[in-house]
Amino acid sequence: MTTAVLDYRSNAIVELMQVAVEDCDEQWLRDALQRAIMLELATIPPYASALWSIKDPQGEVAKAIREIVFDEMSHFGLVCNMLTSIGGTPRLTGQGTVPTYPGPLPGGVRPELEVYLSGLSRDSAFLFSEIEKPDHPIALTETFTSIGAFYSRIAEVFPTYAHLLTGRRQVTFSLSGQHGAGNDIVPMNTITDVLNAIETIKAQGEGTDASPENPFPGHPDELAHYYRFREIYHGRKLIKISDSDHPKWDFQGDPIPMPDAHQAARVPDGGWANDPANRPTPDTAAELQTFNGHYSTMLRALEQAWQADSPMPLIGQAIGAMGSMRSSAGTVVTVPLPDGSGKTYCPEYFYTV
Protein backbone atom coordinates (compact mmCIF):
# COMPACT_ATOMS: atom_id res chain seq x y z
CA MET A 1 0.00 0.00 0.00
CA THR A 2 1.22 3.51 -0.81
CA THR A 3 -0.03 6.93 0.26
CA ALA A 4 1.98 8.95 -2.24
CA VAL A 5 0.12 12.23 -1.79
CA LEU A 6 0.15 13.88 1.60
CA ASP A 7 -3.22 15.24 2.61
CA TYR A 8 -3.60 16.42 6.19
CA ARG A 9 -7.37 15.98 6.12
CA SER A 10 -7.40 12.53 4.52
CA ASN A 11 -8.13 9.19 6.23
CA ALA A 12 -4.61 7.97 5.51
CA ILE A 13 -3.88 6.75 9.06
CA VAL A 14 -7.19 4.90 9.23
CA GLU A 15 -6.31 3.26 5.91
CA LEU A 16 -2.82 2.37 7.14
CA MET A 17 -4.31 0.75 10.23
CA GLN A 18 -6.59 -1.38 8.06
CA VAL A 19 -3.64 -3.10 6.37
CA ALA A 20 -2.86 -6.49 7.92
CA VAL A 21 0.52 -6.58 9.66
CA GLU A 22 1.84 -9.24 7.30
CA ASP A 23 0.96 -7.01 4.34
CA CYS A 24 2.75 -3.91 5.63
CA ASP A 25 5.73 -3.28 3.35
CA GLU A 26 8.63 -0.81 3.44
CA GLN A 27 6.51 1.92 1.88
CA TRP A 28 3.82 1.36 4.52
CA LEU A 29 6.42 1.98 7.22
CA ARG A 30 7.71 5.16 5.60
CA ASP A 31 4.17 6.45 5.10
CA ALA A 32 3.22 5.60 8.68
CA LEU A 33 6.24 7.45 10.09
CA GLN A 34 5.47 10.53 7.97
CA ARG A 35 1.90 10.50 9.30
CA ALA A 36 3.19 10.12 12.86
CA ILE A 37 5.38 13.19 12.31
CA MET A 38 2.31 15.10 11.14
CA LEU A 39 0.39 13.98 14.24
CA GLU A 40 3.13 15.20 16.58
CA LEU A 41 3.37 18.49 14.70
CA ALA A 42 -0.40 18.98 14.92
CA THR A 43 -0.46 18.96 18.73
CA ILE A 44 2.10 21.71 19.27
CA PRO A 45 0.19 24.81 18.02
CA PRO A 46 -2.93 24.29 20.20
CA TYR A 47 -0.86 23.45 23.27
CA ALA A 48 1.54 26.35 22.71
CA SER A 49 -1.32 28.81 22.13
CA ALA A 50 -2.82 27.85 25.47
CA LEU A 51 0.57 28.12 27.17
CA TRP A 52 1.33 31.55 25.74
CA SER A 53 -2.04 32.90 26.85
CA ILE A 54 -1.21 32.29 30.54
CA LYS A 55 -0.13 35.50 32.26
CA ASP A 56 2.19 33.90 34.83
CA PRO A 57 4.64 31.63 32.99
CA GLN A 58 5.99 30.32 36.32
CA GLY A 59 2.67 29.03 37.61
CA GLU A 60 1.96 25.31 38.09
CA VAL A 61 -0.32 24.93 35.07
CA ALA A 62 1.99 26.89 32.76
CA LYS A 63 4.94 24.74 33.80
CA ALA A 64 2.92 21.55 33.21
CA ILE A 65 1.87 22.57 29.70
CA ARG A 66 5.39 23.74 28.87
CA GLU A 67 6.74 20.30 29.80
CA ILE A 68 4.15 18.67 27.55
CA VAL A 69 5.12 20.94 24.65
CA PHE A 70 8.76 19.95 25.08
CA ASP A 71 7.73 16.28 25.21
CA GLU A 72 5.90 16.69 21.90
CA MET A 73 8.95 18.34 20.35
CA SER A 74 11.07 15.41 21.52
CA HIS A 75 8.57 12.90 20.10
CA PHE A 76 8.58 14.77 16.80
CA GLY A 77 12.38 14.62 16.64
CA LEU A 78 12.53 10.92 17.49
CA VAL A 79 10.08 10.00 14.73
CA CYS A 80 11.95 12.18 12.22
CA ASN A 81 15.10 10.22 13.14
CA MET A 82 13.22 6.95 12.58
CA LEU A 83 12.17 8.04 9.11
CA THR A 84 15.55 9.33 7.97
CA SER A 85 17.32 6.27 9.36
CA ILE A 86 15.35 4.05 6.95
CA GLY A 87 15.96 6.35 4.00
CA GLY A 88 12.92 8.61 4.15
CA THR A 89 12.74 12.40 4.30
CA PRO A 90 10.35 14.18 6.68
CA ARG A 91 8.01 16.64 4.99
CA LEU A 92 6.85 19.51 7.17
CA THR A 93 5.91 22.27 4.74
CA GLY A 94 3.60 22.78 1.83
CA GLN A 95 -0.13 22.58 1.26
CA GLY A 96 -1.61 19.34 2.56
CA THR A 97 1.16 18.80 5.11
CA VAL A 98 1.00 21.77 7.50
CA PRO A 99 -1.74 21.49 10.15
CA THR A 100 -4.89 23.55 9.60
CA TYR A 101 -7.27 24.73 12.32
CA PRO A 102 -10.04 24.36 13.22
CA GLY A 103 -10.30 20.82 11.94
CA PRO A 104 -9.58 17.16 12.66
CA LEU A 105 -6.34 15.52 13.58
CA PRO A 106 -4.41 14.35 10.50
CA GLY A 107 -5.11 11.04 8.86
CA GLY A 108 -8.55 10.40 10.30
CA VAL A 109 -7.43 9.81 13.90
CA ARG A 110 -10.23 10.58 16.38
CA PRO A 111 -12.41 12.09 13.61
CA GLU A 112 -15.03 13.27 16.09
CA LEU A 113 -12.61 15.87 17.47
CA GLU A 114 -12.38 19.41 16.14
CA VAL A 115 -8.98 20.74 17.11
CA TYR A 116 -8.84 24.51 17.42
CA LEU A 117 -6.48 27.29 18.47
CA SER A 118 -7.35 29.42 21.49
CA GLY A 119 -6.15 30.51 24.88
CA LEU A 120 -6.28 28.22 27.90
CA SER A 121 -9.74 27.40 29.25
CA ARG A 122 -11.46 24.36 30.69
CA ASP A 123 -12.81 23.67 27.19
CA SER A 124 -9.34 23.67 25.64
CA ALA A 125 -7.93 21.54 28.48
CA PHE A 126 -10.70 19.02 27.82
CA LEU A 127 -9.86 19.02 24.09
CA PHE A 128 -6.17 18.45 24.82
CA SER A 129 -6.98 15.49 27.06
CA GLU A 130 -9.15 14.03 24.30
CA ILE A 131 -6.24 14.31 21.84
CA GLU A 132 -4.01 12.38 24.26
CA LYS A 133 -6.59 9.88 25.53
CA PRO A 134 -5.41 6.25 25.58
CA ASP A 135 -7.50 3.29 24.47
CA HIS A 136 -8.13 2.24 28.07
CA PRO A 137 -7.76 5.18 30.49
CA ILE A 138 -7.21 4.07 34.08
CA ALA A 139 -9.74 6.61 35.30
CA LEU A 140 -12.38 5.79 32.63
CA THR A 141 -13.85 2.77 30.84
CA GLU A 142 -14.12 3.90 27.21
CA THR A 143 -12.60 2.11 24.22
CA PHE A 144 -11.61 3.58 20.83
CA THR A 145 -8.68 3.90 18.44
CA SER A 146 -6.00 6.30 19.71
CA ILE A 147 -2.71 7.85 18.64
CA GLY A 148 -1.09 5.24 20.89
CA ALA A 149 -2.73 2.44 18.90
CA PHE A 150 -1.13 3.83 15.73
CA TYR A 151 2.29 3.85 17.38
CA SER A 152 1.70 0.28 18.58
CA ARG A 153 1.12 -0.80 15.00
CA ILE A 154 4.33 0.92 13.88
CA ALA A 155 6.19 -0.92 16.67
CA GLU A 156 4.66 -4.19 15.49
CA VAL A 157 5.76 -3.69 11.88
CA PHE A 158 9.17 -2.04 12.35
CA PRO A 159 11.20 -5.13 13.44
CA THR A 160 10.53 -6.77 10.06
CA TYR A 161 12.41 -3.88 8.45
CA ALA A 162 15.10 -3.38 11.07
CA HIS A 163 17.68 -4.10 8.37
CA LEU A 164 16.77 -0.75 6.76
CA LEU A 165 18.14 1.24 9.70
CA THR A 166 21.28 3.09 8.63
CA GLY A 167 21.73 5.70 11.37
CA ARG A 168 22.09 8.38 8.70
CA ARG A 169 20.82 11.98 8.83
CA GLN A 170 20.16 11.83 12.56
CA VAL A 171 19.62 14.82 14.82
CA THR A 172 20.94 14.53 18.37
CA PHE A 173 19.69 17.02 20.93
CA SER A 174 19.75 16.81 24.72
CA LEU A 175 16.62 17.85 26.62
CA SER A 176 17.01 15.55 29.61
CA GLY A 177 18.77 18.10 31.82
CA GLN A 178 15.63 20.21 32.17
CA HIS A 179 12.84 18.00 30.88
CA GLY A 180 13.46 14.39 31.97
CA ALA A 181 15.50 11.37 30.95
CA GLY A 182 13.11 10.33 28.21
CA ASN A 183 13.29 13.61 26.35
CA ASP A 184 16.64 13.40 24.60
CA ILE A 185 16.40 13.26 20.82
CA VAL A 186 18.73 10.36 20.07
CA PRO A 187 19.83 8.52 16.91
CA MET A 188 17.85 5.53 15.67
CA ASN A 189 20.67 3.10 14.94
CA THR A 190 19.05 -0.17 16.03
CA ILE A 191 15.58 -1.64 16.40
CA THR A 192 16.05 -1.39 20.18
CA ASP A 193 16.50 2.37 19.79
CA VAL A 194 13.27 2.54 17.78
CA LEU A 195 11.16 0.43 20.13
CA ASN A 196 12.45 2.27 23.20
CA ALA A 197 11.58 5.59 21.57
CA ILE A 198 8.07 4.44 20.67
CA GLU A 199 7.51 3.21 24.23
CA THR A 200 8.64 6.59 25.56
CA ILE A 201 6.30 8.44 23.19
CA LYS A 202 3.31 6.30 24.18
CA ALA A 203 4.01 6.33 27.92
CA GLN A 204 4.59 10.08 28.11
CA GLY A 205 1.32 10.74 26.29
CA GLU A 206 -0.93 8.04 27.73
CA GLY A 207 0.73 6.58 30.82
CA THR A 208 0.90 2.79 31.17
CA ASP A 209 -1.62 0.06 31.88
CA ALA A 210 -0.50 0.12 35.51
CA SER A 211 -0.18 3.82 36.27
CA PRO A 212 -1.13 7.30 35.01
CA GLU A 213 2.33 8.53 35.91
CA ASN A 214 4.89 9.50 33.29
CA PRO A 215 7.71 6.93 33.57
CA PHE A 216 10.10 9.44 31.96
CA PRO A 217 9.29 12.59 33.95
CA GLY A 218 10.91 15.99 34.10
CA HIS A 219 10.14 16.07 37.83
CA PRO A 220 8.91 13.49 40.40
CA ASP A 221 5.26 12.38 40.20
CA GLU A 222 4.74 13.96 36.77
CA LEU A 223 1.68 12.52 35.07
CA ALA A 224 1.31 11.44 31.46
CA HIS A 225 -0.17 14.11 29.20
CA TYR A 226 -3.72 12.76 29.16
CA TYR A 227 -4.02 12.75 32.94
CA ARG A 228 -2.26 16.10 33.37
CA PHE A 229 -4.69 17.79 31.00
CA ARG A 230 -7.59 16.08 32.79
CA GLU A 231 -6.34 17.52 36.08
CA ILE A 232 -6.42 21.01 34.58
CA TYR A 233 -9.91 20.37 33.21
CA HIS A 234 -11.28 19.00 36.50
CA GLY A 235 -9.38 21.54 38.59
CA ARG A 236 -8.15 18.83 40.97
CA LYS A 237 -5.16 16.55 41.37
CA LEU A 238 -5.50 12.93 40.29
CA ILE A 239 -4.84 10.68 43.29
CA LYS A 240 -4.90 6.98 44.06
CA ILE A 241 -8.10 6.23 45.99
CA SER A 242 -7.52 2.50 46.50
CA ASP A 243 -4.31 0.53 46.78
CA SER A 244 -5.42 -2.97 45.84
CA ASP A 245 -3.95 -5.20 43.13
CA HIS A 246 -5.88 -2.99 40.69
CA PRO A 247 -5.55 0.51 42.17
CA LYS A 248 -8.19 3.09 41.37
CA TRP A 249 -7.48 6.72 40.64
CA ASP A 250 -9.79 9.72 40.66
CA PHE A 251 -9.66 13.51 40.53
CA GLN A 252 -10.20 14.01 44.25
CA GLY A 253 -6.90 15.60 45.23
CA ASP A 254 -5.91 19.18 45.99
CA PRO A 255 -7.51 21.94 43.93
CA ILE A 256 -5.72 23.16 40.80
CA PRO A 257 -6.93 26.71 40.14
CA MET A 258 -7.31 27.73 36.51
CA PRO A 259 -4.56 30.31 36.00
CA ASP A 260 -5.25 33.88 34.99
CA ALA A 261 -4.96 33.93 31.20
CA HIS A 262 -5.72 36.21 28.30
CA GLN A 263 -9.05 35.06 26.90
CA ALA A 264 -7.71 34.41 23.42
CA ALA A 265 -10.69 33.42 21.28
CA ARG A 266 -10.83 30.47 18.91
CA VAL A 267 -9.28 31.24 15.55
CA PRO A 268 -12.03 31.04 12.89
CA ASP A 269 -11.74 28.87 9.81
CA GLY A 270 -9.54 30.75 7.35
CA GLY A 271 -8.22 33.12 10.01
CA TRP A 272 -9.33 36.39 11.53
CA ALA A 273 -9.77 38.09 8.17
CA ASN A 274 -12.70 35.72 7.58
CA ASP A 275 -14.53 36.95 10.68
CA PRO A 276 -16.55 40.05 9.68
CA ALA A 277 -16.95 41.20 13.28
CA ASN A 278 -13.26 40.84 14.10
CA ARG A 279 -11.27 41.67 11.00
CA PRO A 280 -7.93 42.89 12.30
CA THR A 281 -6.67 46.41 11.90
CA PRO A 282 -3.56 46.82 9.72
CA ASP A 283 -1.35 46.84 12.82
CA THR A 284 -2.90 43.67 14.23
CA ALA A 285 -2.82 41.98 10.83
CA ALA A 286 0.88 42.80 10.61
CA GLU A 287 1.52 41.22 14.03
CA LEU A 288 -0.43 38.12 13.05
CA GLN A 289 1.61 37.91 9.87
CA THR A 290 4.84 38.36 11.84
CA PHE A 291 3.91 35.35 13.94
CA ASN A 292 3.06 33.33 10.82
CA GLY A 293 6.43 34.24 9.35
CA HIS A 294 8.31 32.97 12.42
CA TYR A 295 6.23 29.77 12.41
CA SER A 296 7.01 29.19 8.74
CA THR A 297 10.72 29.83 9.31
CA MET A 298 10.68 27.23 12.08
CA LEU A 299 9.03 24.60 9.87
CA ARG A 300 11.43 25.19 6.99
CA ALA A 301 14.47 25.05 9.27
CA LEU A 302 13.31 21.78 10.83
CA GLU A 303 12.55 20.23 7.46
CA GLN A 304 15.97 21.20 6.16
CA ALA A 305 17.74 19.99 9.33
CA TRP A 306 16.79 16.37 8.62
CA GLN A 307 18.24 16.70 5.12
CA ALA A 308 21.53 18.31 6.14
CA ASP A 309 24.93 16.79 6.88
CA SER A 310 25.36 19.38 9.66
CA PRO A 311 21.87 19.88 11.11
CA MET A 312 22.63 21.82 14.31
CA PRO A 313 22.78 25.32 12.76
CA LEU A 314 19.32 24.70 11.32
CA ILE A 315 18.06 23.36 14.66
CA GLY A 316 19.40 26.55 16.24
CA GLN A 317 17.52 28.59 13.64
CA ALA A 318 14.31 26.68 14.46
CA ILE A 319 14.78 27.28 18.20
CA GLY A 320 15.31 30.98 17.54
CA ALA A 321 12.15 31.11 15.44
CA MET A 322 10.16 29.48 18.24
CA GLY A 323 11.45 32.10 20.66
CA SER A 324 10.26 34.78 18.24
CA MET A 325 6.89 33.00 17.99
CA ARG A 326 6.54 33.15 21.77
CA SER A 327 7.33 36.86 21.82
CA SER A 328 4.93 37.65 18.98
CA ALA A 329 2.17 35.51 20.52
CA GLY A 330 2.60 37.47 23.76
CA THR A 331 1.62 40.58 21.81
CA VAL A 332 -1.21 39.01 19.79
CA VAL A 333 -3.06 37.64 22.83
CA THR A 334 -3.25 41.08 24.44
CA VAL A 335 -5.11 42.72 21.53
CA PRO A 336 -8.88 42.91 22.21
CA LEU A 337 -11.31 41.68 19.58
CA PRO A 338 -13.38 44.50 18.04
CA ASP A 339 -16.67 42.70 18.82
CA GLY A 340 -16.65 43.82 22.46
CA SER A 341 -16.71 40.26 23.81
CA GLY A 342 -13.77 40.94 26.08
CA LYS A 343 -11.75 38.26 24.30
CA THR A 344 -8.50 38.74 22.42
CA TYR A 345 -6.88 37.55 19.22
CA CYS A 346 -4.99 34.25 19.04
CA PRO A 347 -2.17 33.39 16.61
CA GLU A 348 -3.31 31.71 13.36
CA TYR A 349 -0.37 29.41 12.54
CA PHE A 350 -0.57 29.94 8.78
CA TYR A 351 2.32 28.66 6.68
CA THR A 352 3.68 31.37 4.39
CA VAL A 353 6.25 30.96 1.63
Rank of each mutant, 00 (worst) to 15 (best):
V333D: 11
H262Q: 13
E303M: 09
I198M: 06
L41P: 00
P268C: 04
Y101C: 05
S152D: 14
P134I: 03
T290I: 00
Y233C: 10
D243A: 15
V69E: 04
T100L: 09
Y151C: 13
T97K: 04
H163A: 14
H246M: 11
D283E: 15
G167I: 09
P137F: 09
S324Y: 12
I256N: 04
A162L: 03
G182P: 04
F76A: 13
Q18Y: 00
I54G: 06
P276T: 11
V5K: 15
V335C: 08
R230V: 00
R153V: 00
E112D: 15
Y116H: 13
E222P: 05
Y226C: 05
H294Q: 06
A321N: 11
E72S: 03
P282Y: 02
Q307C: 10
R300N: 07
I315D: 06
I198R: 03
P137M: 03
G119L: 04
K248Y: 05
R110K: 15
S121K: 09
W306P: 08
I44W: 01
L175K: 03
D221I: 00
A12P: 02
Q58E: 14
P220A: 07
P159T: 07
L288W: 01
D209W: 03
V353M: 12
C80G: 08
T160A: 14
L314I: 09
Q304E: 12
L39E: 08
L117Y: 02
P90I: 08
V267A: 07
A264Y: 04
D25M: 12
R279Q: 15
H75W: 08
L299D: 10
L33C: 11
P134G: 11
A139L: 01
E72N: 09
R326M: 13
T352L: 13
L92N: 01
A20E: 14
V335S: 06
A308Q: 05
A125R: 06
Q27G: 01
Y345C: 09
E303P: 02
G330Q: 12
E222D: 08
K63Y: 01
S118P: 04
D254Y: 10
